[in-house]
C-alpha cells in the first residue's frame, strides 16, 4: 500500500516538474525580452547616462525634470495628446468597426471583397503609409486638396500636416483608417460565435435586424469590445510609429503631434545638432508610460482570465 502511495506521489512529482519544465521556454523568452529590459530600463531611469561609458547615479532627478522641471510642459502635453489619440482612434475604429462588422455579418453580397478592402491598409507598412499620405496631403499639389478645390470646397483646403489644429486629428484619422480592418475582423469573428438558433428564434418572434443586433449580438460581443478598448488604450499610450512617419521626431508643428513615444525618442537618442543622448531621461519616460498603462493591463488580464474561465 505504502509502495503504491509512493509511486503515485512520485508520478505527481514528475508531472509537477514536467509542468514546470514546459513553462521554461516561455519563461526564458519572457525574462529575456520583457522582464530584463523593463527592470534594466527602470534602473537606468535613476542614472545620468549618455548611452556609452560610465553611468552616474542621480536618484530621482530624471523624474523631477520630467514631472516638475524643464521637461514637464512637454511631458504633460504629450500625455494629453496620447489621451486624445486614444479617444479619437477608439471612436474611429471601435464604432465603425462594429457597424461594418454588423453589415458584413448580415450576409450581404460581396462580403469577402469588402473584408479584403477593409483589411488591406492594415498590411501596409507604416513607413509606406507615411510616405503615401505625405504625397496625398501635400498642400500645393496633393490630390486631397485638389479634390476639395475641384468640388468647390476651397474653404476646407488646408496644410493638413502643418496646421496646429488639424495635424493631430489628421494623424488620428489615418491611423484609424489603417487599423479599422483589424477591428472589423475581430468583431466579425466574435459575431460568428453568436448562436444561430437564438437569432432564428428572435426572427420568428418578429424581432427586427436592428433589435437582434442591439439585444442579442451586441451583449454577446461586449466582452470583445471591452478587451479591444483596453488593448487600444495600451496601444495609444505606446504610439510612436505613425507620428514619426508623418511628422518626424520633432512631432510638429510646434509640438502639436508630440506623444510620449516621440518625447522618449528625442530624450533618449538626442538626434538634434550635437545634442547627446540621455538614456536615463528616456528610461524615466518609459517608466512613467508603464505607470499609466499598467493598471489597464492588469484589468485586461483580469477580464481575459474571467472569459477563459467562462469558456472552461
Amino acid at each position: 500500500m505504502t509502495a503504491k502511495v509512493n509511486v503515485v506521489h512520485k508520478e505527481y512529482a514528475v508531472k509537477k516538474h514536467l509542468y514546470l519544465l514546459m513553462i521554461v521556454p516561455a519563461l526564458v523568452v519572457y525574462t529575456l525580452f520583457a522582464a530584463y529590459p523593463f527592470i534594466s530600463s527602470l534602473s537606468l531611469s535613476f542614472f545620468d547616462w549618455g548611452g556609452v561609458g560610465p553611468k552616474k547615479f542621480i536618484g530621482l532627478q530624471n523624474y523631477q525634470m520630467i514631472l516638475h522641471g524643464i521637461l514637464s510642459q512637454e511631458f504633460y502635453r504629450a500625455v494629453v495628446h496620447n489621451a486624445i489619440y486614444f479617444i479619437g482612434t477608439w471612436a474611429l475604429t471601435i464604432i465603425p468597426g462594429l457597424f461594418f462588422a454588423f453589415l458584413l455579418n448580415s450576409g450581404l453580397k460581396g462580403t469577402n471583397i469588402f473584408k479584403i478592402i477593409f483589411f488591406f491598409p492594415n498590411v501596409l507598412p507604416i513607413i509606406v503609409i507615411g510616405f503615401l499620405f505625405s504625397l496625398l496631403l501635400n498642400p500645393q499639389w496633393g490630390p486631397i486638396n485638389a479634390f476639395l478645390r475641384g468640388i468647390g470646397l476651397e474653404a476646407l483646403v488646408r496644410p493638413w500636416l502643418g496646421d496646429v489644429k488639424f495635424a493631430f486629428p489628421t494623424i488620428i484619422v489615418i491611423s484609424s483608417w489603417k487599423m479599422l480592418g483589424f477591428y472589423i475582423l475581430v468583431f466579425l469573428a466574435a459575431m460568428l460565435s453568436v448562436g444561430k438558433d437564438q437569432i432564428e428564434a428572435a426572427r420568428l418572434d418578429g424581432a427586427s435586424e436592428m433589435h437582434i443586433g442591439w439585444s442579442i449580438v451586441l451583449p454577446h460581443i461586449f466582452p470583445t469590445v471591452v478587451t479591444l478598448t483596453i488593448l487600444k488604450f495600451i496601444g495609444a499610450f505606446n504610439v510612436f510609429d505613425i507620428v514619426y512617419a508623418m511628422e518626424g521626431t520633432q512631432a510638429g508643428p510646434a509640438g502639436a503631434t508630440d506623444v510620449l513615444g516621440t518625447l522618449f525618442y528625442r530624450l533618449a537618442f538626442g538626434g538634434l545638432g550635437s545634442t547627446a543622448m540621455g538614456m536615463g531621461l528616456g528610461a524615466a519616460v518609459v517608466s512613467l508610460i508603464f505607470v499609466i498603462v499598467f493598471p489597464l493591463s492588469i484589468l485586461y488580464v483580469f477580464i481575459l482570465d474571467r472569459r477563459m474561465g467562462g469558456i472552461e
Partner: peptide, 14 residues
Amino acid sequence: QKYQASYPLIEGNF
C-alpha cells in the same frame, strides 16, 4: 560636457 555627442566616447575611453 556630458551633453556633447563625442564626450561620452572620450569619457568611456573608446
